[in-house]
């Protein structure tokens, strides 16, 4: 499997305490553990089971994911921040890997 590639989209300009949309996605097959490959062999479960976003170290949102979440899990939410800071995104894989991304937020 190709290395999962996380992506996050933020608006160009962010104002203090004004909600903005955060769009997140990571490339990942999200193997449900229910499917068989072309040889009829069960593909073991391997999913992103947890997604955590923090802002300056404070947890903003956590999402627990089950195999019913689509491949390349997409999560979108709103948030508002009082001041500039760093948004940290972490995706936790069944295999123990953690994929991270951080984004600097400059409040206008």
């Amino acid at each position: 499997m190709a290395q999962p590639r996380p992506r996050v989209k933020l608006p160009r300009s962010i104002e203090a305490d004004v909600p903005f949309t955060v769009k997140t996605r990571i490339t990942h097959p999200m193997h449900t553990g229910e499917r068989h490959d072309s040889d009829g062999v069960l593909v073991p479960r391997r999913i992103i089971n947890r997604f955590v976003v923090s802002y300056n170290g404070e947890v903003a949102i956590t999402v627990d994911l089950e195999p019913a979440v689509s491949a390349d899990p997409y999560v979108q939410f709103e948030m508002a921040v009082p001041a500039s800071g760093v948004l940290e995104f972490q995706w936790f894989d069944d295999d123990g890997s953690v994929y991270s991304l951080s984004k600097q937020v400059e409040v206008d």
Partner: peptide, 23 residues
């Protein structure tokens, strides 16, 4: 096959609203 899909926990900075794509 399994009933769970996702659980969102909202902190102080995120209003209780989310969008996700499911199977």
């Amino acid at each position: 096959p399994n009933p769970g899909v996702a659980v969102f926990n909202f902190g102080r900075l995120v209003p209780p609203e989310a969008t996700i794509r499911i199977r």
